[in-house]
Amino acid sequence: MPDYTGREMMAIAAARQINDGDIVFCGTGISMLAAMAAKHICAPSSVIFFETGAVDSRLEEVPLAVADSRVMYGTAVNGSLADSFAVMQNPWTGRRVVGIMGAAQIDPYGNLNSTVIGDYSRPRVRFSGSGGACDVASFVGRTIIFMQHEKRKFVRQVDYLTSPGWLGGPGQREKKGLSAGGPAAVITNLALMGFDTQTRKMFLQGCFPGVTPRQILDNMSFEVDISRSREIAPPSEEELRILREVCDPQRLILN
């Protein structure tokens, strides 16, 4: 079995979640690698799409921001922000979009915080803020979330709800007026988490090779169902080759 890092496993686990034909909304960082890898691994006709307005970018090098000039090359259309968010708000196109994003905190219903730790008016730690994350989480058919598996990140209640997940549980999104979509998976450095279709609560879907369900629970501030957990296949040599040689040869994101 080949050697690999936690970040490589995360990128590949996310890439495997992308279906052929999906329109993939990418944030900054590891989500771009996952989307790039997916095109070579399992979803050749998926479309990479950025909130900055770039549609189907020809990514010969990994962008370091969603506004990197690398996203502007070889696109179908270089639109504006007004265009890109309209694509997601419009249900005809929006339901085909899968959004990949990260955050500083997540709660059991997949609500995300990327704004502050502590009180909003005088935060202990300030983060970048929503960017397009809240828009994507509000609009699209399905979201995939990247997180480091740590107690301080998997919390009962987020300090600031930047991007709506399943809110308080079943029916809450519709009640507030959001689209029917919501978080589908959380990919961490240890595991793949899903959301129960009835309760909308997070559960352990699978552990990465060598990780036990106990370890998962030890790294969260809330309990999750671990009864459905299975071991996730390690990256294949071909998946690693694509990630390392095609997507990020300079290891700008992988390191």
Partner: peptide
């Protein structure tokens, strides 16, 4: 108008 941010703290918390 938009449908973005319903249910979030962007609506509830004012700077």
């Amino acid at each position: 108008p938009t449908r973005s941010a319903l249910g979030s703290d962007i609506i509830k918390k004012w700077g």
